[in-house]
Amino acid sequence: MSQSTAVPIRQSDPMPKRAPGKWKKHAWGYLFLLPAVVIFFTFLWLPIGKGIVFSFYHIDFVKGDTFVGWDNYERILKDPEVVVSVKNTLYYMMLGLLIGFWVPILFAIAISEMRRLQGFARIAAYLPYVVPLVVLYGLWRWLYDPVGPINAVITKIGLEPVLFMTDKAWSMISIVIMETWQSFGSALLIYIAAVSSVPRDWYEAAEIDGAGVWQRIRNITLPSIKNQIVLLLLLQLIATSQNFQTQYAMLDGGPNNTTLTYALVVIRYAFTRQDYGSASALGVLMFLVLSLLAIIQYRMSNRKEA
């Protein structure tokens, strides 16, 4: 019987499965992001794009829009009110940094050093933030009144009463003090969370080495929360550059345009003069400046991380 020399046929190895593509792998994630993207596009990105387009038009809802090129930008750059508002806004931002920016940092550090009643101190510091704006404005108008409680204390110690609302030297300072009292509670919570995340072993080691309170704050606390300080600094600069409601509600830009801010000029162009093209041009200039600030902050944070 002859022996078979046929070579058995070897079955080919199964083809490896192709890895799912990036889009298929994250399809459900993109699906959940879709509503947020639609909302942001409809209510944020689309208005920004339309505002840039409108800045080159004279907007007329009856006769139709007319392309005017750079005329809106030339008009607002020659407007004395715009120049005054830019100066006032820079002054307002500077006062916000000098008066209000360090308040939540100091309170957060002080509360973190407390041995008792920390919870009560946190609640008490945050309470002004929940006061409605209508109540807030009425309260501080009463406090700043020429015969109000603050001036009553000032006259009792033998000084002249201060005209907080009508004196040019005090009007913007008064607004910053009021806003600092009302809004520092939200930043305080962020700083408290940052301070609480610092390892307690560092403080205990510093106390064993004989470091005092100020040495612990300077060498441990402040370096540990510097990223939060830089972030909230940028957020405060953006918020103060866009603020107008306090100036509008308390003094309407007065006295004699002393509290007239850039955002308030935009509101006047849009809703008082109904010059929507120039108002859009003002908004585009603000958008460019704030974008530049954000880019600078982003580069600084990346450089520090590197």
Rank of each mutant, 00 (worst) to 15 (best):
Met165Ala: 10
Pro80Tyr: 06
Pro223Cys: 04
Ala205Asp: 05
Gly210Gln: 09
Leu234Asp: 02
Tyr57Leu: 12
Asn219Lys: 13
Thr5Leu: 07
Glu113Thr: 03
Glu204Val: 04
Val265Arg: 15
Phe56Arg: 12
Pro47Leu: 01
Lys78Asn: 14
Arg122Val: 00
Ile109Phe: 00
Gln242Asp: 13
Ala194Tyr: 08
Glu305Gly: 15
Val195Lys: 14
Phe61Trp: 05
Phe271Met: 08
Leu292Cys: 13
Arg268Trp: 09
Leu90Met: 00
Ala121Ser: 15
Ile296Phe: 14
Leu288Arg: 10
Ala294Ser: 15
Val130Cys: 03
Ala281Tyr: 03
Ile208Ala: 02
Asp71Gly: 12
Ala306Ser: 14
Tyr203Asn: 03
Val68Ile: 13
Val82Gly: 03
Glu204His: 05
Met165Arg: 12
Ile76Leu: 15
Tyr262Pro: 11
Ile217Gln: 05
Pro199Val: 07
Asp209Pro: 02
Pro35Glu: 08
Glu207Lys: 04
Ile52Arg: 01
Leu288Phe: 13
Thr166Ser: 09
Ile109Leu: 05
Gln245Arg: 09
Thr155Cys: 00
Val147Phe: 15
Gly51Pro: 01
Lys226Thr: 10
Asp252Phe: 12
Leu46Trp: 12
Ile267Gln: 15
Ile99Val: 10
Phe101His: 07
Gly283Asn: 14
Leu237His: 02
Val195Tyr: 13
Ala206Val: 01
Gly283Glu: 04
Ala124Met: 14
Lys24Gln: 15
Ile9Val: 04
Tyr30Cys: 07
Glu81Gln: 10
Lys63Gln: 15
Pro223Asp: 12
Gln297Glu: 11
Leu232Ile: 06
Ile295Ser: 09
Met250Cys: 01
Pro128Gln: 04
Leu282Asp: 15
Ile229Leu: 02
Pro199Glu: 09
Ala205Leu: 05
Leu189Arg: 08
Met93Ala: 06
Leu77Ser: 09
Tyr269Pro: 01
Tyr57His: 10
Val103Gln: 05
Leu98His: 03
Val130Thr: 08
Ser280Phe: 00
Pro16Met: 06
Ile154Phe: 09
Leu234Ile: 08
Leu97Gln: 13
Lys226Trp: 09
Leu232Trp: 04
Met15His: 05
Gly100Trp: 11
Ile296Arg: 12
Asn256Leu: 13
Leu106Val: 13
Thr221Asn: 02
Val7Phe: 06
Val37Met: 09
Val195Glu: 08
Ile123Ser: 07
Lys226Ser: 12
Gly100Tyr: 14
Ile175Phe: 11
Arg200Asp: 02
Arg18Ser: 01
Ile111Glu: 02
Tyr57Cys: 07
Pro132Val: 07
Leu159Ile: 11
Phe43Arg: 01
Ser291Ala: 12
Val82His: 08
Phe43Tyr: 09
Arg218Val: 11
Met250Asn: 00
Glu74His: 09
Val213Met: 10
Tyr262Phe: 14
Leu292Gly: 14
Ala211Lys: 00
Tyr262Gln: 15
Val213Ile: 13
Ala239Trp: 09
Ile59Val: 08
Gly51Ala: 07
Ser183Lys: 14
Asp13Glu: 12
Leu143Ser: 07
Leu285Glu: 13
Glu81Tyr: 10
Gln3Asn: 13
Leu233Glu: 06
Tyr298Asp: 08
Tyr129Thr: 11
Asp209Gly: 04
Leu98Met: 04
Glu204Gln: 09
Val153Lys: 12
Ile296Tyr: 11
Trp170Thr: 00
Arg303His: 06
Ile208Met: 10
His26Gln: 14
Arg115Asp: 09
Ile39Ser: 10
Tyr298Ile: 12
Ile295Asn: 11
Asn72Pro: 04
Trp102Lys: 08
Asp209Tyr: 00
Thr155Asp: 00
Pro104Gln: 03
